[in-house]
Amino acid sequence: MFKSTALVAAVVAFVGISPVWAETTGQLTVSGEGSVFAVPDLAVVSVGAMADASTAQEAMDQTSDITSAILARLADAGIEGRDIQTSDLSLNPIWNHRATTDDRPRIEGYQASNRVTVRVRELDALGGVLDALLRDGANQLGGLQFTVSDPEPLLNEARVRAVADARARAELLADAAGVQLGGLISLSETGTPMPRPEMMGMARASDAAVPVAEGETELRAGVTLVYEILSE
Results as ranks from 00 to 15, higher is better:
residue 132 A to G: 09
residue 132 A to I: 01
residue 90 S to F: 03
residue 150 D to E: 15
residue 62 Q to S: 12
residue 95 W to D: 01
residue 129 V to R: 02
residue 158 A to F: 04
residue 59 A to V: 06
residue 172 L to V: 08
residue 88 D to L: 11
residue 99 A to M: 13
residue 99 A to H: 04
residue 144 L to S: 03
residue 131 D to R: 12
residue 99 A to K: 11
residue 157 E to P: 00
residue 140 Q to E: 15
residue 119 R to Q: 14
residue 91 L to T: 10
residue 109 G to E: 05
residue 81 G to V: 08
residue 141 L to S: 11
residue 74 L to W: 09
residue 112 A to Q: 01
residue 88 D to M: 11
residue 154 L to N: 05
residue 70 I to R: 05
residue 174 A to V: 08
residue 118 V to Q: 10
residue 125 A to C: 02
residue 178 G to P: 07
residue 95 W to E: 12
residue 130 L to S: 08
residue 117 T to A: 08
residue 151 P to I: 07
residue 97 H to W: 12
residue 78 G to L: 09
residue 180 Q to P: 00
residue 103 D to N: 15
residue 54 S to W: 06
residue 94 I to M: 13
residue 78 G to Y: 03
residue 145 Q to T: 04
residue 163 V to C: 02
residue 68 S to G: 13
residue 78 G to T: 06
residue 74 L to E: 09
residue 66 I to V: 15
residue 123 L to P: 01
residue 144 L to T: 09
residue 52 D to F: 13
residue 63 T to M: 13
residue 151 P to W: 11
residue 66 I to C: 04
residue 94 I to A: 01
residue 142 G to A: 06
residue 91 L to C: 04
residue 135 R to Y: 01
residue 112 A to Y: 02
residue 176 A to P: 00
residue 71 L to N: 06
residue 106 R to Q: 14
residue 132 A to M: 01
residue 65 D to K: 15
residue 180 Q to D: 13
residue 93 P to T: 05
residue 98 R to W: 11
residue 175 D to G: 09
residue 77 A to T: 02
residue 173 L to W: 02
residue 61 D to H: 01
residue 74 L to D: 12
residue 86 T to E: 14
residue 146 F to H: 06
residue 71 L to S: 06
residue 134 L to I: 02
residue 137 G to C: 10
residue 135 R to M: 04
residue 73 R to Y: 00
residue 68 S to N: 14
residue 185 I to H: 02
residue 118 V to D: 08
residue 182 G to Q: 05
residue 139 N to S: 04
residue 138 A to F: 06
residue 110 Y to G: 02
residue 134 L to W: 07
residue 54 S to G: 14
residue 56 A to D: 14
residue 105 P to W: 03
residue 173 L to S: 04
residue 153 P to N: 08
residue 106 R to I: 13
residue 109 G to R: 11
residue 182 G to L: 02
residue 156 N to F: 11
residue 169 R to S: 13
residue 183 G to R: 13
residue 155 L to N: 09
residue 167 R to M: 10
residue 121 R to H: 11
residue 129 V to E: 06
residue 114 N to G: 15
residue 167 R to H: 12
residue 143 G to A: 08
residue 114 N to C: 08
residue 110 Y to E: 05
residue 94 I to K: 12
residue 138 A to L: 09
residue 77 A to E: 15
residue 74 L to F: 10
residue 101 T to H: 09
residue 65 D to C: 00
residue 177 A to G: 11
residue 57 Q to K: 14
residue 180 Q to Y: 02
residue 69 A to D: 14
residue 102 D to I: 11
residue 128 G to I: 07
residue 121 R to T: 13
residue 55 T to V: 07
residue 70 I to N: 00
residue 171 E to G: 07
residue 183 G to E: 12
residue 164 A to M: 12
residue 122 E to V: 03
